[in-house]
Amino acid sequence: MQFPLASVSFWDLALCLSVAIAVFGSLIGLVIFLSLEIAHNSPVPKWRPRGSPIHLLLVLGSGGHTAEMFYMLEKTYMKEFTYRTYVVSSGDNFSAGKAKAFETQRACPDDNYNIVTVPRARRVHQSYLTAPFTTLQCFWACLNVLCGLHPDQRLPKQYVTPYPDLILTNGPATAVCMALAAKLIRLFQYVSGFNSLLRSSATPRASRLRIIHFESWARVKKLSMSGVLLLPLADTFLVQWPALGGLRAWWGMKRTKYAGWLVI
């Protein structure tokens, strides 16, 4: 009797394995591609009554990113956003301080805000070898924040879900992690929505976790690294210089929108 596996050579096995990996990989790739494509091309469902509570989540990058974020918020009508969650990277006291100062200076200080800390995705000068692990850590923390599982979070009861309605980012790496986490949750919601679709509910579904990214004012002709990564992820991508308007991740995707100077 001959053991059948013995006749399979190493190269046969390697070939089978690589074919399997290639098929599996391209399937995953196709799912990601399609879901990004669908997300970018479906209109925003009209479901929200005016005056309903809105939870805004703001990702504060660091130094210049944080400064630009608050320059922009100073000129934004904030009364709509009845609850604000500020996400800062660990060790970034500057951003946390700015958030506190902004909240105390606001016209109606209602104290409906929270500052949560997530691990830094990549420190300045950190090796690219260890960066994937710290990025994964950051991504996990972002996922927790979006699901309201971060220990510092205590959202008032009138908010029916822990998911923020809107995510506002302007880079860098933490923003990419947050956008990815939001997209993942939305993918799960979309897939689990299929069976309720069969039961034919006519009311449009609540859409949350939408991402607005605005590129730094300092970016004149070329998007930043985080900007390139966020191009297929953000629902609205704003740029502040005309040369960056109308860009898109690939064919069929949403284009960037030139919004003028948001920070001045």
Binding site: K46, W47, K75, E80, A259, I264
Partner: peptide, 20 residues
């Protein structure tokens, strides 16, 4: 300069999906 915006609340409303 025309590039400076006075108010920019609008772009955030687009993504909120208000009924009206």
């Amino acid at each position: 300069h025309p590039e400076i915006q006075d108010e920019h609340a609008g772009f955030m409303s687009d993504d909120l999906g208000f009924l009206d």
